[in-house]
Amino acid sequence: MSDALNALKTAAIDALKADAGVAAFCGPRVYETVPRDSRGDAADVVTPYVFLAGFNWRGKEAGCSPWFGVSLRFHAVSTRFAAGEARSLADAVRFALDRKEIAIAGGHTIDRFIAIAGGDVVGATEPHEVFVEFACELFDATPYPDPA
């Protein structure tokens, strides 16, 4: 995976951790992957929390530098009765990133995040999970290698 794609993942997670609305629900518990205990179980993780559940990209052409269409799917997770807290946390995630431009390390840029989908995670009954999916265009600051 390119440095630009890794930098985008890190920047999105950092933006959620820094957002007051998200932090009001889950503090710093925003993860790229859900932490596991020594048995490989995530059941001991304190809820609520957010994790990056999906990250997809499609290559595009932009002159001499790579360009990607990217989608990121975050899950908001709660063990509170019903799914209200998970839905409220998902709303906070949406408000934190929707139509926002964020700084990305390495000089890479995005046009902005757009929330494109959201809803209950099918099959997730306990804990409750609600997803928010974003799309953006990522412009890689690293030019293609010289074919010489």
Rank of each mutant, 00 (worst) to 15 (best):
P147R: 11
A7I: 10
C136I: 15
F139Q: 04
G107W: 05
Y144S: 01
W57V: 06
W57F: 13
H108Q: 01
F51A: 15
E61L: 02
D140M: 09
F74Y: 11
R112V: 05
Y144C: 00
K100L: 01
A24H: 00
V50F: 02
A83K: 11
P66N: 03
A86W: 08
P66I: 00
A53M: 09
P35G: 08
D3M: 05
Y31S: 01
A4S: 14
G63W: 06
Y49I: 12
Y49W: 11
R36Y: 06
F81L: 09
E133I: 01
R94V: 14
P147M: 11
P48W: 07
D19F: 06
P127F: 07
E85S: 14
S78H: 01
F139H: 07
S65T: 06
P127A: 11
N6T: 13
A20R: 07
C136L: 08
D140Y: 09
C26I: 03
R36T: 15
A103S: 09
A53T: 07
G84Q: 13
R29V: 00
G54R: 08
G118F: 11
S65E: 04
P145H: 03
P127Q: 12
F81K: 11
T79Y: 04
D14Q: 13
L5W: 04
S2N: 15
G107I: 04
A124V: 09
E101A: 03
G54I: 08
V132C: 09
E133L: 02
V46F: 00
A12L: 05
D14H: 06
A11W: 13
V132D: 06
R94K: 11
V93I: 09
W67K: 14
V34F: 00
F51S: 15
A96D: 06
D111A: 01
D37E: 02
R112I: 09
G21E: 12
N56R: 14
